[in-house]
Amino acid sequence: MKKDTRLIHAGRSKSYTGSVVNPPVVRASTIVFDTFAQLKHATQNRGNRVPFYGRRGTDTHFALQEAICELEGGAGCALYPCGAAAISGALLAFLKNGDHLLMVDSAYEPTRSLCDKLLAGLGIDITYYDPQIGAAISSLIKPNTRVIFLESPGSLTFEMQDIPAITAVARQHNIVTILDNTWASPILCKPFELGVDISVQSATKYIVGHSDVMLGTASANEKHWLQLREHSYLMGYCASADDAYTALRGLRTLSVRLKQHGQSALKVANWLAQRPEVETVLHPALPTHPGNSLFQRDFSGSNGLFSFVLKQGSQQQVEAFVEGMAHFKMGFSWGGYESLITATMKVQNLRSATTWPYSGPLIRLHIGLEDVEDLLADLEAAFSRFNQAS
């Protein structure tokens, strides 16, 4: 099946849907059995989409897990209450005291906080690495290196990583690779085809698509699925059936939403590139982006999230820019139908292995599904406020 068709049918086998279109919401904690033989069968197959206990999942969860595997290509998918939980669950499934983790320097800020405030305290050695290091990551590997964590593109500064080059080195050393694939969603990048072992996503973002559910997923290849599944279960990770149902519903429109997000974002990005106040636009689909060749090779499309850097700007000017927007809302997260805006004055504070080359403020946009002309007018007014505040 082609991508768009697969999105419609993934996770909709009759064993989940019966005679209706969507898998019903099955809420449960206790699963009851009529015979000891049935209980024994469920116990022995509790990891194979057989109802056993609510935390293991119901048919609603199984349908979503199956759909994510169909779309991403993994051997199995674990569900978590949010994206940050999926990241911590995946890392803790493969790391222990005394192990070494290679973490990309451009990682999502909560991922860095997890490393510095929790993993380090558990006795895990962490080295941050340049996202553009490629195969040279071999020089950072230690005898106790167990995991390499990637995020491509970086969700704030949008560096592209050479995923196949890094995963090839990791395989040579029997190191687990984990990729935060949230930006691409399940359809713009195929991480397992690029050699990744674990693909993590904040389903809160594009999978759900409506800014009303917290949910995370982690898919694994055959070699690592059992360990990811069992360790995540031991740590108590699970998600509600209602949230799984909402994510399944979001999947059905994912492709058409991403096409609109991507088309509008490119229009805005090209418009921003012509502004005299803008130093650079950090959008990997632009030919001017230093990682564009990697983007063209590994990704099938783009979405609505990117950043741009101003040539200069005081705190007062940046506040004038982001306040008073008609359509862009200030808030964290992204991937919903609405446009969002955030600003960062000092990117260097969020990295340690690399030097940020720009001195001006960084503004991140998520381009929603509004008419792009209205969004451009909103940004035009923002630049006017910015210049008047100087």
Rank of each mutant, 00 (worst) to 15 (best):
A220F: 11
A247C: 13
L226W: 03
A170M: 05
V213C: 14
T182P: 02
Y206M: 08
R146I: 04
L266Q: 11
V213R: 15
K205A: 03
P276N: 05
P186L: 06
E222Y: 03
A218G: 08
G195L: 03
E151R: 00
T217D: 05
A165H: 08
W183N: 06
E193V: 07
F149S: 01
H210W: 01
P186G: 04
Y206D: 15
H173C: 08
Q263W: 11
L228W: 07
L156I: 10
K205D: 01
L150V: 11
C189S: 04
T177I: 12
E277S: 14
I163M: 13
I207C: 02
G154M: 07
A239I: 14
A241C: 04
T157S: 13
S255N: 15
S232F: 02
P276E: 13
P153A: 01
Q274I: 06
S152H: 02
E222W: 05
K259T: 05
P164V: 00
F158S: 10
N144E: 11
Y237I: 07
V208Y: 10
S240P: 01
L226F: 10
L228V: 13
R146W: 00
S240K: 00
L188I: 12
R146V: 02
V196H: 03
P276A: 14
L248E: 04
E159G: 01
Q172S: 14
A239N: 03
V213P: 01
W271T: 11
Q227R: 13
I198D: 10
K223I: 02
A247G: 10
G250N: 04
R229V: 04
L156Y: 08
T280V: 15
I198W: 06
P191N: 14
S185E: 06
N144A: 09
N181R: 02
A184N: 11
S185Y: 11
R171D: 15
A168R: 13
R171P: 12
S185T: 09
L228P: 02
T280K: 15
A247T: 09
Q263L: 08
F158D: 01
A220T: 07
T246V: 00
